[in-house]
Design a protein around this nucleic acid. Structure first.
Lengths: 189, 189
DNA sequence: CACTTATAGAACGTAACCGTTTCGCAGCGA
DNA sequence: TCGCTGCGAAACGGTTACGTTCTATAAGTG
């Protein structure tokens, strides 16, 4: 038995290479056409290596999403609620418009429809972001920055919904130049 | 050669049975796991019959969406813009929350990512609805029913986005009791 | 009724992917 | 250096779906 410290680095190295390739593959092939064999080819790895680390396709995909979940969220220290919103949503727009993760969103939605683990991840993923937005909006309402009648949770959903709707149902992503207008419209002055 | 009028009714009957079953299958299995063989089994039809009507899976799916596209949109004659919005969006909420079509939305999104024909359909489908909403909102703005600063297109996207975001990224669909609040928040008085 | 033809059902070869196993190698820790 | 073990590569049988072809049936037409 190996000691805790002296873990063979090949294990983690393989894991990272495979998980990264998994997101690429998922974005290109989609949830249904994602296969272990094509992943192995893309990652430059033997099929048996993948099966040594994960029991099945679902575990691997769920793992890949979890691992990629560490986002660089922009700092909002010392900003007004409106400025913070502008910055956070601007970041969402960027990520949703173009990133490895972005191209996986359709696959995530499709996968979440079939598998409870992906559904759980998707829910956690969206809930976290929505909650922080909601808290921020609530602060803005309390400070008189936004209209008093605004329901923070509903507003957060409208803002995020605008961005995701563009990505998922139309062919263009949200135009970041209109973010200010969107915030004004939903939250008022 | 047959006359134009005396077309064999078996053809159209088969088409309808298959297209209907295709939506069911698409909703249950998803875009990737959709197969001709499982569709044939579900429709109670021979595989060869399907291949006689469509050259491949994509054509069939695109056809199924087109055929199912005839919606019963509620009448909005003689209503104010706000009342019309309430009714139209209420209908969207119903459809998105629960219908054969609803369960196909994830598959449509996934499929649109892979195939230009489905992308085209999705775009047309969403654009139509968005445009009629936009026109309605513009009317409300012109009539002073909504805030003057409202951008109709942006508002339409925010309203629809709220509804679709709930369906696609969270586990709950939009609560129709909050529709009034949503409209008030986005469009003011 | 006699004809045409769409369909059901079965069989076919092909291809992809499954998940497992075996083996030789090379990177690793001690 | 030695022993361990993760890895690449290849092969395996099994399964599923592909798209095509054939035949008998039965529904439609005139």
């Amino acid at each position: 038995m190996r000691s805790e410290r002296g873990v063979d680095p090949r294990i983690e190295r393989s894991r990272q290479v495979i998980l990264r390739a998994a997101l690429d593959e998922l974005g290109e092939a989609g949830y249904g056409a994602f296969t272990i064999e094509s992943l192995a080819a893309r990652a430059g790895v033997a099929k048996s290596t993948i099966y040594r680390h994960w029991p099945d396709k679902i575990s691997l995909i769920a793992d890949a999403f979890e691992t990629a979940h560490e986002h660089a969220v922009p700092s909002v220290d010392g900003l007004t609620a409106r400025e913070s919103l502008q910055r956070l949503l601007g970041h969402v727009i960027e990520v949703v418009a173009d990133s490895v993760f972005s191209s996986c969103i359709p696959a995530l939605i499709e996968g979440a429809e079939r598998d409870p683990r992906l559904r759980e991840f998707r829910h956690r993923y969206s809930a976290l972001r929505r909650q922080s937005l909601t808290a921020l909006i609530a602060r803005g309402v309390a400070d008189g920055e936004f209209r008093a009648a605004v329901d923070p949770a509903l507003a957060a959903q409208a803002l995020l919904g605008s961005i995701f709707y563009g990505r998922l149902m139309t062919s263009e992503s949200f135009d970041s130049h209109r973010l200010g207008d969107l915030i004004d419209m939903v939250l008022g002055p």
